[in-house]
Design a binder for these strands. Structure first.
Length: 565
RNA sequence: CCCCCUAUAGUUCAAUGGAUAGAACGAGGGACUUCUAAUCCCUAAAUCCAAGUUCGACUCUUGGUGGGGGGACCA
């Protein structure tokens, strides 16, 4: 049985023995201070009023009746907390767990046999891959990995925007420059930057010159209908370049996709569904088909415009259908920018009236924005930092900091990505991040590289021990003083479970950072490898266990651990 | 005008309604002949304002103020 359940049961039994009937929930938490114990419950304070007793006295009575082999000590403290300290054998048993199943330590089976679908990193082909996409990718990838820890079968999809008026504008600009201009750029990144410029400049030109509208609409239609025209040919070139670049870039960041669902596919499916549900779900208004969100406390949105074309809303309905048909998920997670929050509520609510699963089995998670010193970025204006540029800059910074070490280009890349991902994931998803490339990216203290460094440091210790023929041993030596590490390691599965339930990677960040700090402090005042000290072997076990938990935590964050740095 | 989100050290972030609000950066002071100093130790420094609920509030409620997002044919 999981330790939290064991203790919860022991407390419930104790409450019963104290002659109190109570079958509500009770909170079991880790006290902020390790000196207060490993778990604490506020049950006495909660019951005191109803029982008309002093909370401290009540706590004493309950505490006396709590009994479990895993518990070493129970104390009543503060306003009526019952503090529980676990037994040395329990800590040891958990370190053994880590050794038994290292690569899956922390995972559980709550969703075994079920399917979870995650959609993230959906690009707009022709728009550059900028920092906002990186936020989405980082957060989405981590949520997908959290889903994996639950034992579920996880499928990851992306939903590229391959048709839109905006793309028509970009293609117009591309043709205006001449498609052959693409050949002037050597690297793919430069070609991408150029296409991004076409998108921004095409939009500007369109806004400034109304006479362009007819031509742009024609191009857009060429794309929709795959007409054999120069515009469609130009579009194909740009689209394929972008898609290829997108897949390579996300792979570099550590993501892969099991499937792509294109906006053009979803549009066709969506229009049909929406039309089939007029007037029971959607209604006609001013020539358009809308959903009246006011009936649900939301706002009205247009699903099919007066030209008969599906808007993004209808496309999202089509997307839902395709997702549920193709993958039959028990839970479908969508990760987008928070600007789509209110919008998606309308889509989701209306979708639920067509198929209840589309609402009930669907979770929309949003992430905040990167704000650059208060300036909202806008990819449309083309002044947004591109992921490629940011990575280059950070890699350069990493190499400067390497300070005598030899880093391979891959290692520098992995460290740079860790630094960026950490800044994104440390904050609760949904909140905006104030990003200043000069100061936000840290390589010291709370940072991705700090975690990587701590892991590498642990490996280095193990390495040294190994050369001395010293191997970790799972046995607490006589007179062993339990360390903070042991009292923290066993919490990892709890943290992972909590983080999955809320799809909140930042909880993993916080935990792994604290664990790393504990390890480094321990490292600082303990000589781990000491041939004359028999406790060395158990210290090596702790070192190995800690490294493993850091590595597993980093995996959830989508950050690679380095064996040395 | 309406709806949603948000406000914590100088800065960037933590804190299932609990005990003395934690880290990191920056500032000041220390620690490498010893397992990796991208590290560690010490010091100073914070809950937007006003009411309310509660044994107990950064957390919940109401009203302000500042910031962000959204509000019919963009995505």
């Amino acid at each position: 049985m999981v330790i939290t359940e064991t203790i919860t049961q022991a407390i419930k039994t104790a409450v019963e023995k104290a002659g109190i009937s109570y079958d509500g929930d009770l909170t079991l938490e880790h006290p902020r201070e390790l000196s207060h114990g490993d778990y604490a419950t506020n049950i006495a304070m909660m019951l005191a009023k109803a029982e008309n007793k002093n909370p401290l006295e009540l706590a004493e009575i309950i505490a006396k009746n709590i009994n479990a082999p895993e518990i070493a000590n129970i104390e009543v403290a503060g306003p009526g907390f019952i503090n529980i300290t676990l037994a040395d054998e329990f800590y040891l048993s958990q370190v053994k767990e880590i050794f038994t199943n290292p690569d899956n330590y922390g995972w559980n089976t709550a969703w075994q046999g079920k399917k979870i679908l995650v959609e993230h990193s959906s690009p707009n082909l022709f728009k550059p891959f900028h920092i906002g996409h990186m936020m989405n990718n980082t957060i989405g990838e981590s949520m997908a990995r959290l889903a994996h820890t639950s034992g579920a079968e996880v499928t990851v999809v992306s939903y590229p925007s391959d048709v839109s008026l905006g793309i028509g504008k970009a293609v117009w600009k591309l043709m205006d420059y001449g498609v052959e201009k693409l050949d002037e750029f050597e690297t793919v990144a430069e070609k991408m930057a150029f296409l991004g410029r076409c998108y921004a400049e095409g939009t500007q030109a369109y806004d400034a010159a109304p006479e362009l509208e007819a031509r742009v609409r024609e191009i857009t239609q060429d794309i929709y209908e795959h007409r054999d025209t120069p515009a469609y040919a130009a579009y194909k070139i740009g689209r394929d370049l972008n898609l290829d670049y997108f897949l390579k870039m996300t792979a570099r960041l550590g993501s892969s996709f099991d499937g792509l669902i294109f906006e053009s596919e979803a549009g066709i499916a969506g229009k049909e569904i929406v039309m089939n549900h007029v007037p029971d779900v959607y209604t006609e208004s001013n020539g358009a088909v809308i959903y009246e969100g006011e009936q649900d406390g939301l706002h009205t949105r247009v699903f099919i415009n007066k030209d008969g074309n599906p808007t993004y809303e209808a496309k999202d309905i089509g997307l839902l259908k395709l997702k549920f048909e193709r993958y039959q998920p028990d839970l479908s997670v969508l990760v987008t920018d928070s600007e789509q929050k209110e919008y998606y509520k309308v889509v989701k609510t209306s979708a639920g009236k067509i198929n209840a699963d589309w609402d009930e089995k669907m979770v929309h998670k949003t992430h905040g924005r990167m704000q650059f010193k208060g300036t909202k970025m806008s990819s449309r204006l083309g002044n947004t930092p591109l992921v490629a540029d940011i990575l280059d800059a950070v890699v350069e910074e990493v190499n400067e900091r390497a300070d005598g070490r030899t880093l391979t280009p891959d290692e520098a890349d992995v460290i740079a990505i860790a630094a960026i991902k950490y800044t994104i994931l440390r904050t609760q998803a949904g909140k905006n991040i104030n990003f200043d490339p000069d100061t936000s990216l840290s390589f010291e203290g709370d940072s991705g590289p700090y975690l990587q460094y701590t892991y590498a440091r642990a490996q280095s210790v193990l390495d040294k021990a190994s050369h001395l023929d010293l191997e970790p041993q799972l046995e607490q030596p006589d007179g062993w003083q339990v360390t903070d590490l042991e009292r923290y390691l066993y919490r990892f599965p709890e943290i992972v479970d909590l983080a999955f339930r809320d799809l909140a990677p930042h909880q993993v960040v916080t935990y792994v950072t604290e664990l790393a700090q504990m390890f480094n402090t321990w490292y600082g005042n303990t000589k781990i490898v000491d041939q004359d000290d028999p406790a060395t072997l158990y210290r090596l076990a702790l070192t190995k266990a800690t490294g493993q938990v850091i590595k597993n935590g980093l995996w959830i964050l989508g950050i690679d651990a380095l064996e040395q740095m």
